[in-house]
Design a protein around this nucleic acid. Structure first.
Lengths: 347, 347
DNA sequence: GGTTAGCACTCGATGAACAAGAGTGCTAAC
DNA sequence: GTTAGCACTCTTGTTCATCGAGTGCTAACC
């Protein structure tokens, strides 16, 4: 891959991203300043095709980038994309003074990012291990049911109803709740497991009679409360792209994305390093093998905790998406950081 | 409208609902046993068209029902639709022994109904006035933030973060929470307004110093917690119907439905009587004037409280949808009734 | 007088034929 | 190594004829 081939490939991809039309040698010679004629570019294109970076939908049409081409692009060719000041302002003011309350923060961020990117956006909540139990309460509804409320240190709030097999009095529930909370406060939610609960059970039973099974139920409820969650927004953005004008295709993709487990998997799998690009079949799911996803992790006090992703056609604006996500992720991390400082500081 | 015209109209609508194709006189003469020739039916059809019940997409095509035709159909012609035993079983077992926990009940019901009907399904939660405050708790997160948790007598659970303008200690918050709950328990959430809160404020201030504004914030939070909510499911079902193969149309409808206020309005407007049919422009929104909606109220101890609706093309299976919704609404009402009896009975 | 058979007519859908245009690959000249 | 030129390919859009479903109307029928 000499210099000129790279420039040709970059031109092809840039043009195709903008127009969604196969791009021919003449277009490149005219619009991208390579200083050579279309014939020369044709020769380069033939080479690029042989190398697998571009392909021809049919003989005598222009070329479109292959998955491998996009991969090479994001790895080596992509320019830094500068967001326009207006966009940066939008993001800053969203995360500014009036940033949404903590429990609205993630879904609202998701919406902002999908509006700005014009792609499908998803955000994975912090990992279990990063969240510690900050508040816990069990509210009785009736003798057989109660609501468990959990607040983690990052401010995520969960509630869940619990069904008891035998009646539990309000008084008893209150006692259990208090003792439990006393023991569990500050622990990582990940730590709450059967073993810990057994230990507690031992301690607790000295103080009061514990109904069998209740602790297990609570332990279970707490654990599932701490599970990761995915917010999704902008699914309809997909309809704006010319590659998704086929109803069947759209149905397949959207119903695929309706499964939260799938979304989790998509985001979790790319949580290690900061910015990540997954192109077409790299996503490992046939339903979205004509899509690409750009993800970025966001952090909480320096600990990796969640990730943000936008999903669009393989012909997506990788550079711009990356810049957008990065900006959003940084701002989000900052807000979460401050939230937490308030927590610790003012208390 | 003599007997025969009615039979012809019914045949046309039935056929069109099944095939989505304009239906011709010959089809009717052949498949629907009217005992007359196609020529006679042609004459009747010309009359029906003049009366405004059917229309012709273009000269020399078959006829399709007009909105007025559908209206006449649901008002006078529609047969009772019998669900097949399998369907009834599905519904019964969903609402049976292992019915979802109360806070999952409505969204899950929504999903079941959309799966069975193949249309978009929405459920409006109980009206404010029907729900009384059963449980309330304020959990401190930090001096400036707390979580308000509300459980209504129908088992709906809401949580909301509250930002205080000035720090409030945990102890103080606990006191306020307890006193407030003591006063408000059993009241309708609708009753919680500034006036009541002022009164309470007077009483409370004898017992403790109340930070200005806190009560208003709480009042506000409680009120919005009691607001109606809409669950939506099966939006992708729309893609299965031949009248929605146009991406633009689909985009318009789905983004229209993404607005929860709109959904509320759609369901609230039809909450008075039990079963309700709204056809095309009767829905009063251009975006969905090619859709129809069947709604049914469900009740709680005999009090009207919420409503269920399915939205499909005007060419929808009105009879079947009505039967489905009715069955679901009745079962739902029953489960909610029992829930409540448990509440009262066992406590 | 209502019903029906027959027939001419309309109009969308389908598909073939054709021209236009975009783009390529190859060759030969620079 | 680069480029101009050209023949060739393939898609796209258009025109045109055909087909068929379905109608409306008329005249005959019971």
């Amino acid at each position: 891959m000499d210099e000129r081939k790279q420039r040709v490939l970059r031109a092809i991809i840039t043009d195709y991203i903008n127009t969604a039309e196969p791009v021919g040698s003449r277009t490149i010679a005219k619009s991208y300043d390579l200083g050579v004629s279309s014939a020369t570019i044709r020769n380069e294109m033939a080479d690029l095709e042989e190398l697998g970076f571009i392909e021809q939908p049919h003989t005598s049409s222009g070329r479109i980038p292959s998955q491998q081409g996009y991969r090479y692009y994001v790895d080596f060719l992509m320019d830094e994309s500068n967001l326009v000041p207006g966009e940066i302002n939008t993001i800053h003011s969203f995360f500014g003074e009036d940033a949404p309350k903590i429990d609205k923060l993630l879904p609202d961020t998701c919406k902002v990012l999908s509006d700005m990117s014009h792609y499908i956006t998803m955000i994975l909540t912090p990992t279990k291990s990063a969240g510690t139990l900050e508040q816990m309460q069990i509210l009785p509804i009736n003798p057989f049911q109660a609501v468990l409320i959990i607040v983690t240190d990052v401010g995520l709030i969960h509630h869940r109803t619990i069904d008891f097999p035998v009646p539990v009095s309000e008084k008893r529930l209150k006692e259990i709740s208090q003792v439990l909370f006393g023991k569990l406060k500050g622990h990582s939610i990940d730590d709450v497991n059967v073993t810990l609960m057994r230990e507690l059970s031992g301690e607790l039973s000295k103080e009061m009679e514990i109904v069998d099974g209740i602790l297990e139920m609570l332990s279970d409820a707490i654990k599932t409360s701490g599970e990761e969650k995915v917010f999704l927004d902008g699914t309809l953005n997909i309809l704006n792209h010319p590659e998704f004008q086929d109803i069947e295709k759209v149905k397949e993709i959207l119903s695929f994305l309706a499964n939260e487990e799938i979304l989790k998997e998509l985001l979790q799998g790319r949580k290690r390093d900061g910015m990540n690009f997954a192109i077409g079949e790299e996503l490992s799911h046939g339903q979205i093998n004509q899509c690409s996803m750009v993800t970025c992790t966001y952090s909480f006090n320096g600990n990796t905790m969640g990730s943000i992703g936008v999903l669009g056609p393989t012909r997506m604006e990788y550079a711009r998406s990356a810049s957008l996500i990065k900006e959003v992720a940084e701002n989000l991390s900052m807000v979460l950081h401050n939230e937490n400082k308030n927590n610790g500081g003012k208390k």
